[in-house]
Computed example of a mutant assay.
Amino acid sequence: MAPPRGASGPHVLVLVAHPDLRRSRVNRRLKQRGQAAARSAPGIEVRDLYALYPDFTIDVGAEQAAAAAADLIVWVHPIQWYAMPALMKLWVDEVLSLGWAYGPGGRALAGKDLWLVTSTGARQEAYHPSGYNRHFFDAFLPPYEQTAALCGLRFLPPLVLHGAHVASADELDSHAALFGQRILSHPDWPELADLPACEACITPAQDRPNRALA
């Protein structure tokens, strides 16, 4: 289960993963808004993965410690080729390890919340059976949802900004403001009152034997 909440409120871990943040219109604003929130709320931590690990050598122990301390883990990244950027995927591969995040003995993140905050270059109408992406955007979310479920995380309704390349400055600022408000107010979001906790997703030991536990 998540650690007890202190006087500063729940601990929020914001993981920003953008391969070229200097050129970003959306994620750069979100990182800045997250950092501003962190200055006013000690319970918020912002980690820029591409700045921390330019050589893609992830400090797994440090990342696991940060995730274990959080009540809410936020993934902030653009959608690239219908999925997460490469370093975010490597974070998933290495940090969410067997015996720690899932599988036999892997309950380090159980009971926490996972929130995807993402953006697409395409406008929303492109994510439609009649659009060039051929599917509604939700069709691309099952890998996120199942990753959360396997780790015992509750997957929160994502915050998505479509049309990032053409969004107005006012739209970008409103999006960032909502993001900042949400990380400061978690878990007191009205829609979470009726969102069930994640059901246990048990991995049989014979499917994924953990040699470290053998």
Results as ranks from 00 to 15, higher is better:
residue 49 L to M: 02
residue 173 D to L: 04
residue 151 C to P: 09
residue 32 Q to E: 15
residue 124 Q to V: 07
residue 91 W to D: 05
residue 173 D to H: 13
residue 88 M to P: 05
residue 196 P to M: 06
residue 115 W to F: 01
residue 178 L to K: 08
residue 138 D to H: 11
residue 40 S to K: 09
residue 59 D to T: 05
residue 139 A to I: 04
residue 99 G to E: 11
residue 21 L to D: 02
residue 170 D to Q: 14
residue 25 R to I: 00
residue 93 D to K: 13
residue 40 S to M: 05
residue 185 S to T: 15
residue 83 A to P: 06
residue 59 D to V: 04
residue 83 A to E: 12
residue 161 L to F: 00
residue 178 L to M: 14
residue 86 A to M: 04
residue 77 H to K: 10
residue 175 H to G: 01
residue 33 R to L: 06
residue 90 L to K: 14
residue 14 V to P: 08
residue 198 C to T: 06
residue 85 P to M: 02
residue 56 F to M: 05
residue 93 D to S: 12
residue 103 G to Q: 01
residue 81 W to M: 11
residue 208 R to C: 00
residue 86 A to Q: 01
residue 65 A to H: 04
residue 134 R to S: 07
residue 62 A to H: 05
residue 43 G to K: 07
residue 93 D to Y: 13
residue 28 R to F: 08
residue 185 S to W: 10
residue 31 K to E: 15
residue 77 H to C: 12
residue 34 G to L: 04
residue 142 P to M: 02
residue 198 C to W: 03
residue 52 L to W: 06
residue 137 F to G: 03
residue 75 W to G: 07
residue 8 S to W: 10
residue 133 N to D: 08
residue 130 S to E: 12
residue 210 N to W: 14
residue 207 D to Q: 11
residue 119 S to L: 01
residue 123 R to C: 13
residue 35 Q to S: 10
residue 111 G to K: 08
residue 18 H to S: 04
residue 189 W to Q: 08
residue 121 G to K: 00
residue 27 N to T: 09
residue 182 R to E: 13
residue 120 T to I: 03
residue 164 A to Y: 01
residue 46 V to K: 12
residue 21 L to N: 00
residue 139 A to E: 13
residue 149 A to M: 09
residue 203 T to F: 00
residue 98 L to P: 07
residue 181 Q to P: 14
residue 202 I to W: 13
residue 210 N to E: 12
residue 36 A to C: 06
residue 66 A to Y: 04
residue 142 P to G: 05
residue 119 S to E: 04
residue 155 F to T: 00
residue 172 L to Q: 05
residue 61 G to Q: 14
residue 86 A to S: 14
residue 92 V to Y: 14
residue 177 A to R: 15
residue 117 V to I: 09
residue 62 A to N: 03
residue 22 R to Y: 03
